[in-house]
Amino acid sequence: MRRAVCPGSFDPVTHGHIDIVGRAAKLFDEVVVAVGVNASKNRLFTAEERIEMLREACAGMANVTVSSFSGLIVDFCREIDAQAIVKGLRGGNDYEYELPMAQMNSHLTGVETVFVPTTAALGYVSSSLVKEVATFGGDVTGLVPDAVLARLTTRLAERA
């Protein structure tokens, strides 16, 4: 069985994330969406909330599960016997950022990284940009799943 991991913070999950996960699910027998847990990072949503949102968003993908990890992604890959890490690339800057990590991960464990380019229509979407636009009252409908939009709107209202 070929198992891949799609790691990220997913704060919040976007349609760009779901697109990459769905495409990875067509390439691998099993895909584990791995939510990074780092207590030193200030996130809008807790790890549990991000996991729940991802489970809802990926519910229609039979070979996709959602989990969490802390520490090195390659250690998590070893734990679950994953052969690959799947990362979405929006453009050259993402590639420049991701390539050294992919090379280090391969060096450490032999786990390969598969880069999947984002769908052109979602190339500009990022969690950071979604949060920023939504914080200032911009409409992010269509950039995140409906259930995520509801949670995002509620959370930002709580913080305002």
Rank of each mutant, 00 (worst) to 15 (best):
M53G: 08
D75C: 00
T119P: 01
D81T: 03
E30H: 14
T109S: 15
T153I: 11
L122T: 03
A57C: 13
T109F: 03
A160L: 07
C58M: 13
S67Q: 09
Y95T: 04
R23T: 12
R50C: 06
M1P: 12
T153L: 09
N63T: 15
A121C: 03
A82I: 08
L89S: 02
V32A: 14
L149C: 05
E158V: 13
A147P: 00
V5F: 11
R90D: 10
T65I: 12
V66Y: 04
D146P: 15
M61N: 09
Q103W: 02
A157V: 06
V32Y: 04
A34R: 01
V116E: 07
N42M: 14
T119Y: 03
G8E: 13
P145A: 13
A62P: 15
I18E: 08
P100G: 12
R78T: 15
I51R: 09
G110S: 09
K41V: 10
V148M: 04
G88P: 03
C6T: 07
E30T: 12
A82R: 05
T46N: 08
P117V: 01
Y95F: 15
F115I: 06
C77Q: 01
E132Q: 12
T119M: 11
M53A: 14
P7Q: 09
E112S: 10
V21Q: 05
A147M: 03
V74A: 07
M61W: 04
L129H: 00
E52N: 04
G92N: 12
N63P: 03
P117I: 00
E49L: 04
V31C: 09
A157D: 11
L156W: 09
A24I: 05
